[in-house]
Computed example of a mutant assay.
Amino acid sequence: MIIIDGSYGEGGGQILRSSLALSMITGQAIEILNIRARRPKPGLRPQHLTCVKAAASVCGARLEGAEFGSQRLVFIPGKVKPGNYSFAVGTAGSVMLVFQTVLLPLALSPGPSEITFTGGTHVPWSPCFHYIDLVFRPAVSAMGILFEMELERWGYYPKGEGIVRTRILPSEGLGSFRPVPRRGERVCVKAISATACLPGHVRKRQSARVKSVLEGREIEVDVEEMEGSAMCPGSLLFCWISGQGRYGGFTGLGARGKPAEKVADEAVSGLLAFLDSGAACDKYLSDQILLPAVLARGESQWSTNSISNHLLTNIWVTGRFGLGKVKLLEEDGKSGLIKCYGTD
C-alpha cells in the first residue's frame, strides 16, 4: 500500500484526486493522511467525497474513512469498469474536478462510458466547463484521450445544480505531448461572454471590454455572447487560444457588486501575460497534462508561463507511484520547460 501525505506541497484536494486516479490505473492501494491539511477547512468536503465515491463506483473499490471531514482515507481499487454513471456533488462544488478524477482510468479501460455530472460548472478555484472542453480536451485528444461534453445547464455559485453530460471513448494508447508554438503568426483569440438570470447589458459590457483591451493590443478576438440556463444568477468571461501550438484559457466570474468590466479584466490580464510569455501551455494545463504524460509512450515536452505549486505537487504524487521521470528547467524562477519521460 502506498502512503500519501496529503499535507505535502499545496496540501489541497489535488493530491487526493491525482492519487485516486493513479490508484485506479495502477491497481495499487493507497492510504492518504492529512487530507487537505493546509486548507482553512481541512478534510473531505462534499466535492472531495464525490470524487472518492465516483472513483470507488467505477472500480468497485473498498473504502475506509470516506466521511465528511475525514483527514484519512484508505482506497483499495478493483478493476475499472466502463459503463453509464451519474455523480452529483450536491453543492456548487466543481463537477469538472470530479470528471478529471475518473477520466483517465475510464479512457484507459476497454469500453466507452457515459457519465452525467451535477453540481458547479463555472465556480471559483477550479477549471470551468469551457476550459475543459476548449483547452484541456484538444490537448489530451492529441495524446489519444477522446471524450465529448455537453453543457445542459450552467451551475454557478452558490446554488450549483449545473448538468454536464460526457462520453468517454477507450484509448488505443497514449502518445507523447509536444506542442511547439508557431512564432510569427498572427494570434487569434476567442472569447465567450455569458450570463444567466441577469440583464443582457452585463454580457454586452463584458464583450465590449475584452474587445477594447485586446484590439488595443492589435490582437484579433472573436467574442460569442450567450445566455445560459441556470438555477441562480451568474456571469462568465472566458477567453482562450487553442491552436498555433499553444493552449491557454482564462476565466473571469461575476459576483454580487462586481462590475462586468472587472470580470472581463480578470480573464484578459491572464491571457495577455500568457501571450507575452511565448509559452506553449498555461500553468493550469501544465499540471493537468502531467498525469497522462507520465503514462504516455516516449518523451513529452512543453513550455509553461508559470511553474505552479499544483504542478510541483503533481510531480511528487506521480513519483510516489513510481511513474515516469519529470525534469523541470526553470528559466526565470517562474516560467520554464517541463520534460516528462513516460513509458518506453
Rank of each mutant, 00 (worst) to 15 (best):
W316C: 08
G270P: 07
C281E: 10
G322R: 14
R320H: 07
D276A: 14
R297Y: 07
T304K: 15
H310F: 11
E330K: 14
I289N: 05
K283Y: 00
A264P: 10
E331I: 01
A267I: 09
W316H: 15
R320E: 14
L275M: 07
L285I: 01
A280D: 05
V317Q: 04
E299T: 15
L328A: 06
I307T: 08
N309C: 07
S277L: 06
D287S: 09
K325R: 15
A264N: 11
G270M: 02
L271F: 01
S308K: 13
F274K: 12
D265Y: 04
R320A: 02
R297W: 08
V326N: 06
S308P: 07
T304N: 08
S308D: 07
G319Q: 06
C281L: 14
V317K: 05
L272W: 01
A293I: 09
K327G: 01
S277P: 08
S286W: 01
L295S: 09
L290F: 04
L295W: 06
T304D: 08
G324R: 13
W316Q: 14
G270R: 09
G298I: 04
E330L: 15
V326G: 00
L328C: 07
L291C: 10
K325G: 13
T304F: 00
E266L: 14
L275V: 08
V294D: 02
G270F: 06
S286M: 02
V326W: 05
D276W: 07
I307G: 12
G324E: 08
G270Q: 09
W316D: 15
V317L: 10
L328F: 03
V317D: 11
T318Y: 01
W316Y: 15
S306C: 15
T318G: 03
T318M: 04
V294M: 11
K325L: 08
S308E: 11
Q288E: 06
L311D: 05
A264R: 03
D276Y: 11
A280I: 02
E330A: 13
T304Q: 12
P292R: 02
G278E: 11
G324H: 09
A273K: 14
A279F: 00
I315C: 13
S303P: 08
T313M: 13
E330V: 08
G278P: 06
E266C: 03
I307H: 13
K327N: 07
E331F: 09
D332K: 11
Q288W: 01
N309Y: 04
Y284W: 00
F321I: 11
G298M: 03
A280Q: 02
A264G: 12
G270W: 10
N305S: 12
A293R: 11
G319I: 05
L290H: 04
L291E: 12
L323G: 10
D265W: 01
T304C: 13
A279L: 03
A280G: 03
V294P: 12
I289E: 00
A264H: 06
V268T: 03
E266N: 12
H310M: 10
K327P: 00
G270K: 05
R297N: 09
Q288T: 00
G319A: 06
V294N: 10
L295I: 05
W302H: 13
C281Q: 02
A296S: 15
G324A: 07
S303H: 06
T304Y: 10
F321V: 05
G298L: 09
E266Q: 12
L311Y: 11
L312F: 00
A273Q: 10
